[in-house]
Simulated scan of single mutants.
Amino acid sequence: MSNGWPTPPGRKTCSRGSGRTARPSSTTSSPICTSDGPKVVRTPGLWEEIKAHGYTGGYGAVRAYLQPFRTTPTAPAARPPSPRTVTSWILTHPDTLPESERLKLKAVLASCPELDALTGHVRAFGKMLTQLQGDQLPQWIKAVRADDLPSVHSFVNGLERDLAAVTAGLTLPWSSGVVEGHVNRIKMIKRQMYGRAGFGLLRKRVLLAS
């Protein structure tokens, strides 16, 4: 007993750090490396088992012996970016892409040559579109045909069906975007009035909105 009290009859004294045997926790376990690979070994269970075979040491000695064989749990791998995220990186101009996202995209492209080739074609087409370089369209189509990218080949087939118009759209400064915008606005107004008014009211709403 501590604090000056005498030890009760039949009990043995035990000084701190003398290797006393305490009741081990049943939850003490972690992987250890064995000849068959990492295995989960519960120290209390192992201690109880070897005691049954005549081991007279304490629980602390068994735990200390197993400690060098413990393996440190590895951190979970980072979650890969979603297809939507990678698509947004590819469609973003390289000069405006943040450095952190640029490095992530670089790592993704390094592991997928087909995606790397697709990214090059997308950016080349974006350059033609924004800088009105329609004269480079034939060379771009030829480069796409040289790669095994069936989905992009389908896109090219659509371009070649109306090649003259596509070339003009990538070369001339005029655009039908304003007309398309007005068409969409009229369709929206028509849907708002569907089943409640006729052409006369639709005409007034379109003209007044203009």
Rank of each mutant, 00 (worst) to 15 (best):
N3P: 01
G4R: 02
P8H: 06
P9G: 14
K12L: 08
C14P: 00
R16Q: 10
R16K: 13
A22V: 15
R23I: 15
S26L: 05
P31T: 03
P31C: 06
D36I: 06
P38F: 11
V40P: 01
T43Y: 09
I50G: 06
G54Q: 11
T56L: 08
Y59A: 14
Y59V: 09
Y65R: 12
Y65E: 02
Y65I: 08
Y65S: 07
P68N: 11
F69I: 04
R70V: 05
T71H: 11
P73S: 09
P73M: 11
P73W: 11
P76E: 14
P80D: 03
P80T: 08
P81H: 07
P81L: 04
R84A: 08
T85C: 02
V86M: 06
T87I: 05
S88V: 01
S88A: 13
I90F: 00
I90P: 00
D95Y: 00
D95T: 01
T96K: 05
E99V: 02
S100I: 08
E101D: 03
L103C: 00
L105K: 00
L109H: 08
L115I: 05
D116L: 05
L118W: 12
V122C: 02
A124N: 04
M128Y: 07
L129V: 10
T130E: 15
L132N: 08
Q133S: 14
G134L: 14
Q136L: 13
Q136F: 08
Q139R: 14
Q139F: 13
I141T: 04
I141H: 01
K142E: 13
A143T: 12
A143S: 12
R145M: 11
A146I: 03
D147G: 01
D148C: 01
D148E: 11
G158A: 04
D162R: 15
D162Y: 12
A164N: 12
V166S: 03
T167A: 07
T167E: 13
W174Q: 07
S176L: 10
S176D: 10
V178F: 12
V179Y: 03
V179R: 09
G181M: 01
G181Q: 06
G181K: 11
H182N: 02
V183A: 10
N184G: 05
R185K: 12
K187T: 03
M188D: 00
Q192G: 10
M193S: 15
M193R: 12
G195M: 13
A197S: 15
F199V: 06
G200K: 15
R203N: 07
K204F: 00
L207D: 00
L207N: 02
L208Q: 05
L208K: 00
A209K: 00
